[in-house]
């Protein structure tokens, strides 16, 4: 099995003694769509910064597709690209120049750089803006530019550090589609995000970093299975009784027609429907109250 990313016992202590990460072990398979989750300051950006050579590690090892980032830095760097959290392109450069320069830094010949830059500007809807200075772009366009720039050298591993922060729903969904497409084409993707529904929808595997250490590293399915229960909002077309409770669920009445029901994980929705039906309550709609991953995440990191 090829590993896109192999991190072993990675530690980083900043000047002044602040220990950002401690003995981090993380393996990401080739072709995976992987979520790295954690609260602000948990150590995500430090870990990814080390992987991308923007932060010096204190100890431990990192390999990208088998290339060690210290001893085979040039080969390792060719395999990878990062879309950082903050915009880090030159605000006064034109969109197309930012992409051309990116290709140049990777040593690509100008003809190939132009071809790829054109391809990604068109794919990400930047073509009409190619001659404009990057500072004039909207927030969503700037995010697209960051992604296009990261793809010019066609990396095998793409790291996205909160790529959809601050963009509207429409752009977010179009980005999801685009990322899913390039993942299907073989690019391994590591995603960090605070929008947990994004991670739940896109990623197959997930790691949670908390206070500088990995506390969970498993498949998304396994992680969600750890959830002790699930809360639903049930709507009835008739007035609800004041109290509705069962052996395997608890509920409280929100108003005449809405009920919040907490269902134990060992039971299915069918069981709930049957029980409510036996109590003469009809159900016109049902919705999840919380995002499942969000709930698991909060339980694990509290």
């Amino acid at each position: 099995m090829t590993l896109a990313l192999d991190i072993n016992r990675l530690c980083k202590t900043y000047k002044g003694g602040m220990e950002a990460i401690r003995d981090v072990d993380l393996q990401v398979k080739d072709g995976d769509f992987f979520a790295l989750l954690g609260e602000n300051g948990a150590g995500k950006s430090t870990t990814l910064g080390i992987v991308c050579s923007l932060v010096n590690k204190t100890s431990g090892s990192v390999s990208i597709f088998g290339y060690d980032i210290t001893t085979q830095a040039s080969l390792a760097k060719r395999q990878i690209s990062i879309v950082p959290q903050e915009f880090n392109f030159n605000n006064f450069e034109r969109v197309k120049d930012i992409l051309y320069q990116q290709g140049g830094y990777y040593g690509l010949p100008p003809s190939l750089v132009k071809e790829r830059a054109t391809k990604y500007m068109k794919k990400l809807g930047l073509w009409d803006k190619r001659k404009e200075q990057s500072r004039t772009l909207s927030g969503g366009m700037k995010r697209r530019l960051m992604i296009a720039r990261a793809l010019v050298h066609e990396p095998r591993l793409l790291i996205l550090d909160e790529p959809t922060a601050g963009v509207d729903i429409e752009i977010r969904h179009s980005m999801w589609e685009f990322l899913t497409e390039i993942n299907k084409q073989g690019t391994t993707i590591i995603l960090t995000t605070h929008y947990l529904e994004e991670a739940e929808q896109l990623c197959r595997n997930v790691a949670i970093i908390h206070k500088g250490s990995i506390i969970q590293n498993t498949s998304m399915r396994n992680l969600l299975h750890q959830l002790k229960g699930q809360t639903y909002i049930v709507e009835s077309s008739h007035t609800l009784p004041n109290e509705v409770n069962g052996d395997f669920y608890k509920s409280h009445r929100i108003d005449d027609n809405f009920l919040e029901v907490h269902l134990n994980t060992d039971y299915k929705l069918n069981d709930l429907f049957k029980d409510l039906d036996s109590k003469g309550i009809d159900i016109s709609s049902i919705d999840l109250k919380d995002n499942r991953l969000e709930k698991t995440f909060i339980e694990l990191t509290k």
Partner: peptide, 17 residues
Amino acid sequence: GNKFQRSLEEILVSPTP
């Protein structure tokens, strides 16, 4: 200026020696 705007990172993450 490149350091301040962080656009230097574009070069630092690349294999440019």
